[in-house]
Design a protein around this nucleic acid. Sequence first.
DNA 1: TTATATTTCTTACAATATAATTAATATATA
DNA 2: TATATATTAATTATATTGTAAGAAATATAA
Lengths: 113, 113
Amino acid sequence: MKFLSRPEELLLHAVWELQEDAYCVSIRKHVSKLTGKTWSFGAIYVPLHRLEKKGLVKSYLVDPIPVRGGKSRRIYKMTPPGLKALDEVRKLHDSMWTGVPEFSSEKKASNES
Amino acid sequence: MKFLSRPEELLLHAVWELQEDAYCVSIRKHVSKLTGKTWSFGAIYVPLHRLEKKGLVKSYLVDPIPVRGGKSRRIYKMTPPGLKALDEVRKLHDSMWTGVPEFSSEKKASNES
DNA sequence: TTATATTTCTTACAATATAATTAATATATA
DNA sequence: TATATATTAATTATATTGTAAGAAATATAA
């Protein structure tokens, strides 16, 4: 395939959207809100780490901030290839659905057999 | 996650679009054209079979047609749950991207570090 | 009756997703 | 100061999903 998987797309979207504030916890909140589902930390870290290995995202630790607890936040940032990949799935989706009217459940669902 | 994966979305889209003509070979052509990539038959059958097991699609064999070769075509059809799932990812994508302007590669990609 | 085309289907392996848990490290409070 | 509590990163083990390679079936053509 070579297109972003759906979790990858959602995670990159969060990183893109959150900008300077894109660290694990905020990313998790972002995708949870968008999808209406709960995301484990593994579901954030593992794919994000893979994306970093592929160069679609980069990260760095920032200095402690004045709220209690936690290791230093790791901030994620888009890279140009990451943006490109995000753009590609967006366009793929558009080419699938633009011009197609909202479908009502009956339209092309068959009920025979 | 419970959303359709991207291959699943593409395959269901093909089944939906092709209607009566949705069998393995035509589905493969459809998704190849849409994605610009080659799809092995395994990449069609295996996920499609899983989708059928989950009730998102159903299939049946049709009588031989007057072209040479091949086992009987297996035609796939959307089911109402399949349509629902397809609609869900479509809406998810819309909620991610509507209102967001086409992004140029510079916009939110960072170049520091 | 042999060749060739078209299709389904299987299997084995690779890649990805996710839950569950551990570890680290900050402030708050007794 | 010592202990509690909050917040975060990171790992690991398992389940799920994706994909290539190719076998098997079955039609017409030569």
